[in-house]
């Protein structure tokens, strides 16, 4: 399991309410604090992490959930800086975010 964490910020502040993007509702806005990829869809954690990174889910990027599907609110459409990416909640669970006011 690979964990990358924005350690500097986690140290000085009282732990902000970090949650997984996969469980957030439409309208949620936040900033990516880390990726905690796990094996999914027959792919190893490392590969999931690389795919998320390639689509711009990098620490520090700002995200917003724009839309969700009809069945089980899945998949979700996420604004990542200037791009919109569709993904399933399963994989979005690997993206750790800190809510923005």
């Amino acid at each position: 399991m690979s964990i990358t964490f924005d350690a500097a910020i986690a140290d000085i502040r009282p732990a902000p309410a970090i949650c997984a993007l996969g469980s957030a509702r439409p309208g949620f806005r936040g900033r990516i604090r880390g990726l905690r990829a796990f094996e999914s869809g027959g792919l190893p954690a490392e590969e999931i992490e690389r795919r998320l990174l390639e689509l711009g889910f990098v620490e520090g990027a700002q995200v917003e959930i724009l839309h969700q599907g009809l069945f089980g609110g899945d998949p979700i459409a996420v604004r990542v800086d200037a791009a919109t990416i569709a993904l399933r909640r399963r994989e979005a669970a690997a993206i750790l975010v800190e809510p923005l006011e």
């Binding site: 027959g42 999931i48 795919r51 998320l52 689509l55 919109t84 569709a86 993904l87 399933r88 994989e91």
Partner: peptide, 13 residues
Amino acid sequence: GTPSEPFMLELPD
């Protein structure tokens, strides 16, 4: 038993 691969797709303007 092999699950479907993750779905990740950019939605262009």
